[in-house]
Simulated assay, not measured.
Amino acid sequence: MVWIGGGTFAMGAEDKEGRPDEYPQHRVKVDGFWMDATEVTNDQFAEFVEATGYVTTAERAPDWEELKKQLPSGTPKPHDSLLVAASLVFTPPVQQISLHNPGQWWSWKKGANWRQPQGPGSSIKGKGNYPVVQVSWDDAAAYAKWVGKRLPTEAEWEYAARGGADNQLYPWGNEDVEAGKPKANTWQGTFPNKNTGWDKYSGLAPVKRFAPNKYGLYDMAGNVWEWCSDWYAADYYSTVGGRVSDNPAGPSRSIDPQEPSVPKRVVRGGSFMCHSSYCKGYRVTSRMKASADTGLENTGFRCVSSK
């Protein structure tokens, strides 16, 4: 782990590239904390599973009584053949398509989980130093508790990603992600159908393949999205006011106008799927969200500790 000295910083976007939920920029104070230098790897997560017998969300059949709480009232129950252990797998189309519907490049695949990230036939053999994926927020929180750590708050995550610089766009500074030499594992080419692999990776990369930021943290941009402890609320920043927020832990509940019935947690940092035409999630202020039971091929986590 790396020690991140506490301090006060300007959280949120000040440029014109942010989404509405990244404004207004506001002052935040965080105490010092320890943070994992890398995303939690397959080897590390395997130790947890072996020691505890933990079964991840993606390895369990959905509970209809729980699932229907996230759906509009009156939604009919799916056939039992559909309520099976599964997860979402990136399935790139063969040609360029409209970017308005992410469902075009995600497939709900039976048997996809952290051991088989792309479904049956895939494997993490020989990939012990790759970030674990297909883990829900619940899985990440369970791992963090087991190792005596916790998930970072959104404020801690952004403070750490900035590497001590208040007004920079990316963990490495302000140079565009595709200028100079590769700085993060992102998408190059035409998303979502063609990745040129300029950064040497067309999918996940092992941890520590790109230079760390000034705090010594690797992959704070790209590779996989990282779960934070906070609930997601689209208007959270606007509720802070002019005061300095002291170690904020996020809103008390989730409010996502796009899906009001689905509570969401914050994810940060972008992934190997981020491209400027669609998702500049590798910006230090970029916020995304997902329901706590969601597993994805491009989402993992890292832990922090105050001790």
Rank of each mutant, 00 (worst) to 15 (best):
I255T: 08
A233E: 14
P76T: 05
V2W: 00
P78D: 02
A46M: 08
Q104E: 15
M220W: 01
G163Y: 03
I124L: 03
T52C: 07
G216Y: 02
L169V: 10
G222N: 14
D80C: 00
I4K: 04
S261T: 13
S306K: 08
D21H: 13
K307R: 04
G250V: 13
A161S: 10
G270M: 06
L296Y: 06
R209Q: 15
G164H: 02
P62R: 02
A161H: 01
N193D: 06
S238L: 09
E39I: 13
V266S: 05
E226R: 11
W106H: 10
W225Y: 15
K109N: 00
P72D: 01
W231P: 07
A112Y: 08
S245D: 07
P102I: 02
H100D: 15
D36G: 15
G103I: 06
F9W: 14
G300L: 07
R162K: 15
S271Q: 09
Q168N: 11
N129W: 05
K69Y: 04
L83C: 01
F33A: 09
K110W: 00
K68N: 05
L151Y: 02
F48M: 07
K183M: 08
P117Q: 13
P260S: 14
P78L: 00
W198L: 12
N193T: 00
G18S: 11
Y236W: 15
P257W: 08
K149F: 10
G173I: 03
K289L: 14
D166K: 02
R265F: 01
Y159L: 02
N101Q: 14
W105T: 07
M288V: 06
S123K: 10
F301Y: 08
L71E: 01
P171F: 05
P20F: 14
Q188W: 12
S98I: 00
M220D: 01
L204E: 02
Y143T: 07
M35G: 15
I124C: 06
P117W: 08
G103S: 06
S252I: 10
K110T: 04
Y218C: 05
G126C: 05
V55Q: 05
G163T: 07
R27Q: 08
P257G: 12
G197C: 12
G250T: 11
D246R: 05
I124M: 10
V266K: 04
P62W: 07
Y215F: 15
G128E: 01
H79P: 02
K110Y: 00
Y278P: 07
W34A: 09
S306W: 12
G6S: 06
A184I: 06
K194I: 01
P248W: 04
A85L: 09
I97E: 15
A141C: 04
F90A: 11
S306T: 14
V94D: 03
Q104I: 05
W157I: 03
Q116G: 00
E14P: 00
G281C: 09
V94N: 09
K183Y: 12
H275S: 11
C303W: 05
M273G: 09
G250C: 11
D230I: 03
G111R: 03
A211Q: 12
